[in-house]
């Protein structure tokens, strides 16, 4: 069984762009450790010959036809944008090239 280290918690938090204070990080080390320990309990079951479940739903092949539907008016699409010039969502300058 893999122990959850504090660095694992910090890594996952960083990936999720969450800021954790020390108390929260300590608490999560314990909580995530318990969840993983529970997974280990499941691992004790014999699953030989059991099909892996790939999806929670039994339904398959739900599609829409390739037809267009009206889009939002641009004013509506942009109305909650923190910044806009009336055409684009404006964000802090992106330095990366695409």
């Amino acid at each position: 069984m893999k122990e959850i280290a504090r660095s694992d918690v910090e890594y996952v938090a960083a990936l999720a762009q969450l800021k954790l204070d020390d108390a929260a990080a300590d608490r999560l080390v314990g909580e995530l450790g318990e969840i993983l320990a529970y997974m280990d309990l499941l691992n004790e079951l014999d699953t030989e010959g059991v099909e892996p479940m790939m999806h929670a739903l039994e339904v398959t092949n739900v599609y829409r036809d390739d037809v267009t539907a009206p889009s939002l008016p641009r004013e509506a699409a942009l109305q909650n944008a923190p910044r806009t010039d009336g055409a684009y969502f404006l964000v802090p300058r992106i330095l990366d090239q695409e």
């Binding site: 699409a77 684009y88 969502f89 404006l90 964000v91 300058r93």
Partner: peptide, 8 residues
């Protein structure tokens, strides 16, 4: 204005 614009 030093911004990037996003077009969805």
């Amino acid at each position: 204005g030093g911004c990037s614009g996003v077009d969805f």
